[in-house]
């Protein structure tokens, strides 16, 4: 057990930051409103970041680090779907991959903007090219292009891949949520340190600091649990636990960070919404915390 970044992982993180400083960020993300940042994904691919999990010596944990940095930089691209989920299921994948839950209530991120889709239904996992699906866009204010995807034809990926797709998707969600939470909490900690009311920084009031400290604990819990689950990708219980906790925690983070930021928090300009709106989508994906929790219980305590 070593819960610190190795020198290689630290190097990976530094390189990602250099790239994202140049080619990502909230401003750029906003300007792409209903689009996907293909140039960013191309740069990531060229640098090998999208394939860290499948390159020699790489692991899914490295892919989690890529996802963490991408989400922290508000990358407007399905990085986790490609670098983490597709890496677990496909030998090679196109640049832009979408994840489709065939539940009739489900919305798909980047629907209509992807080259291909990984599809989860009760029969398992399958793969559909863009031309094999119908997409109905659902314009929204939730931080991602969203839409409904109806799969006309898809290639089955073989037995056992349904569970693998679900688990990888859950780990990806937890990693994305953890990073979005960290960004929201860090931004808020800075804000309450500088914002003064009644002659004191509001972060010095315990009602504010305790609300944010609980958010910090939930954030760290989400991040570490996602990493732990990624490190043991065959353990479907860990993946379901990571998603259950993350989806619960995300609700708390949204409430707490907005509450202690006051009105400025809801403005587009300020930037908190870049993460909190996304958390609304992420925490409700795959049926939300309730469905993750029920699935987790069924894995842990199967019917005797």
């Amino acid at each position: 057990m070593l819960l610190q970044l190795t020198a290689d992982q630290d190097q990976l993180r530094q390189s990602l930051r250099v790239l994202f400083d140049r080619q990502a960020g909230w401003e750029r993300s906003r300007s792409l409103e209903n689009d996907v940042d293909r140039p960013l994904l191309s740069s990531m691919q060229q640098a090998g970041f999208l394939d860290v999990a499948s390159t020699e010596g790489g692991t899914l944990l490295d892919a989690v680090l890529v996802v963490e940095e991408a989400e922290a930089a508000c990358a407007r691209a399905p990085v986790a779907a490609r670098a983490l989920v597709a890496a677990r299921l496909l030998d090679s994948a196109p640049l832009v991959v979408g994840l489709v839950d065939t539940d009739p209530c489900a919305l798909t991120r980047y629907a209509g903007l992807c080259d291909a889709y990984l599809v989860l239904d009760s029969g398992g996992a399958s793969y559909a090219e863009a031309a094999q699906v119908d997409v109905t866009p659902e314009p929204s204010r939730w931080g991602y292009p969203l839409g409904r995807v109806r799969v006309r034809r898809a290639a089955r990926l073989g037995s056992g891949t349904g569970g693998r797709l679900l688990a990888a998707w859950q780990v990806a969600l937890a990693a994305e949520m953890g990073a979005a939470m960290r960004r929201a909490v860090d931004l808020t900690a800075t804000y309450v340190t500088h914002r003064t009311q009644f002659g004191r920084p509001i972060g010095s009031y315990q009602a504010v600091s305790h609300a944010l400290s609980e958010a910090k604990v939930a954030t760290e819990g989400t991040i570490w649990m996602a990493r732990r689950a990624a490190a043991d990708p065959d353990d479907t219980i860990l993946a379901a636990a990571a998603a259950t906790y993350a989806a619960d925690a995300a609700g708390l983070i949204v409430q707490r960070t907005h509450q202690v930021t006051g009105a400025i928090g809801i403005t587009r300009e300020y930037g908190l919404v870049a993460s909190t709106m996304r958390l609304g989508v992420l925490r409700s994906e795959l049926g939300g915390p309730r469905r993750h929790a029920i699935g987790l219980a069924e894995l842990r305590w199967p019917q005797p």
């Binding site: 649990m225 379901a240 259950t244 929790a293 987790l296 069924e298």
Partner: peptide, 18 residues
């Protein structure tokens, strides 16, 4: 019941990793 137990399990696993 599964929902409750699943959530409790998730919180315990998070306490472990933290």
């Amino acid at each position: 019941e599964k929902e409750l137990a699943g959530r409790a399990l998730a919180y315990n696993e998070v306490a472990r990793v933290l």
